[in-house]
Design a protein around this nucleic acid. Structure first.
Length: 310
DNA sequence: CACACGTGGAT
DNA sequence: TATCCAAGTGT
């Protein structure tokens, strides 16, 4: 459809026609209509609980690894109250190798809170979502938008990268989310709720599928013609180096090894079994203490350990 | 605000 | 092989 001459005053049907980023909405949403992945948490039957589970699992973990675990969780704990009634250690065990197992503990805690405070229904109110353990700025907006169709700026790493390039004209967004990014995201939000929710999902999908961190696919991008970064000749990121993660030899690696033993065990494990995962006793003890302090491991009398029962 | 927090696939 | 990266949160 051809764009008619811009009317002197915006009509209700095109309420955001003059708003910032209005020229991005239609191309990105239309592209999403044709290219969105058929992910289980996007199906209507997933419900708000399914959306919430997926958002926890997708925090720093790729879709491909989340898919099978997501299906297992939803089948085993179809409602928040089902998870709340089970032991937190079972959530940690079922988390498998998704990484960052504290997310499993927090998701269990969120299920308990939902059962106690919200009658077992995932709240739709942003502030109530934000008050749940494991839910921060991004996840609260994501659940409210994806599950309940509300109008929120959903600023994840994909959206931040798309905005950095298409609007700001730089290759990468800042290390941490800035006030300027929040302001921009709000300014770019379509006025009406359903379109805003669609835009949130579409802009995120664009970052996930085409406008990726490396090897971006501008030839298929629906907004390549307007992309500030591409128009500027795609200059390389200059600023401070993007924070890299080290892993080998860290406490995180040791914690991972300890927890792997406990996930596989269905009876309490003796200290000696845990000692075998790491040779350095000081670091090993520190890692185990950390897991206990985090509530991921429950110490028992007699030098035995297990995943938390309560 | 910088850092801790898992894991595995891709380059 | 060494890095980078993947729908962040909590402190």
């Amino acid at each position: 459809m051809t764009a008619p001459t811009k009317p002197p005053h915006s009509s209700p049907a095109r309420a955001d026609a003059d708003a910032p980023g209005a020229d991005l909405h239609s191309p990105v949403i239309d592209w999403f209509d044709d290219n969105a992945r058929d992910l289980p948490w996007r199906r209507p039957e997933a419900g708000a609980w399914g959306v919430m589970i997926s958002e926890f699992m997708l925090q720093q973990t790729p879709v491909s690894r989340v898919l099978p675990v997501y299906e297992q969780w939803l089948a085993r704990w179809p409602r928040p109250a089902d998870l709340a009634a089970d032991a937190p250690g079972e959530a940690v065990r079922a988390w498998g190798r998704l990484g960052y197992p504290r997310r499993a503990l927090r998701l269990h805690g969120a299920a308990v809170a939902i059962t106690e405070r919200h009658g077992g229904d995932v709240p739709s109110d942003h502030a109530q979502l934000l008050a749940l353990p494991g839910i921060g700025e991004y996840t609260a907006a994501a659940v409210a938008s994806f599950a309940y169709g509300q109008r929120h700026a959903v600023l994840d790493t994909n959206v931040r990268r798309v905005f950095a390039r298409a609007v700001t004209g730089v290759q990468y967004p800042p290390n941490a989310t800035t006030a300027a990014e929040r302001k921009l995201a709000r300014a770019l939000l379509p006025d009406d709720e359903p379109t805003a929710a669609r835009w949130a999902a579409a802009s995120m999908e664009l970052g996930a599928l085409l406008c990726t961190a490396k090897n971006e696919t501008c030839v298929r991008c629906p907004i390549a013609a307007q992309c500030a970064w591409r128009l500027a000749g795609k200059p390389e990121h200059d600023g401070p180096p993007r924070r890299g993660q080290t892993y080998a030899g860290t406490d995180r690696q040791v914690r991972g090894k300890l927890l792997a033993v406990l996930r596989a065990a269905h009876v309490p494990v003796p200290q000696s079994a845990l000692d075998r995962v790491w040779h350095e006793p000081v670091q090993r003890a520190r890692a185990l203490d950390g897991l206990v302090a985090d509530g991921l491991v429950e110490p028992l009398p007699g030098g035995l350990y297990r995943l938390p029962l309560t």
